[in-house]
């Protein structure tokens, strides 16, 4: 298959990072607000934030893995 088309497809696949970045930024901002409002709950907020970030990040990771699989299996 044409390597250029594969590269374009891989580039489109990693666009998932856009949404993940937006989501993580919003979540972190809200967490900072929450800690500022209630500093004594920072432990709980932290672990919740970690979990949320992990779940948000997974979309970006899926895009990345998809792009890698496209490059390494279709291209080779």
């Amino acid at each position: 298959m044409d390597m250029g088309m594969i590269a374009i497809g891989a580039g489109i696949a990693v666009l998932t990072g856009l949404g993940a970045g937006l989501g993580m930024g919003i979540a972190t901002g809200k967490a900072a607000e929450a800690v500022a409002r209630q500093p004594e709950a920072s432990g709980k907020i932290n672990s919740l934030l970690m979990l949320g970030l992990a779940l948000t990040e997974s979309t970006a990771i899926y895009g990345f893995v998809t792009a890698l699989i496209m490059i390494f299996t279709l291209g080779a």
Binding site: A54, E57, S58, Y62, F64, V65, L68
Partner: peptide
């Protein structure tokens, strides 16, 4: 996929 993607 999460773990693998992060490591890679």
């Amino acid at each position: 996929c999460r773990l693998f993607g992060n490591m890679l």
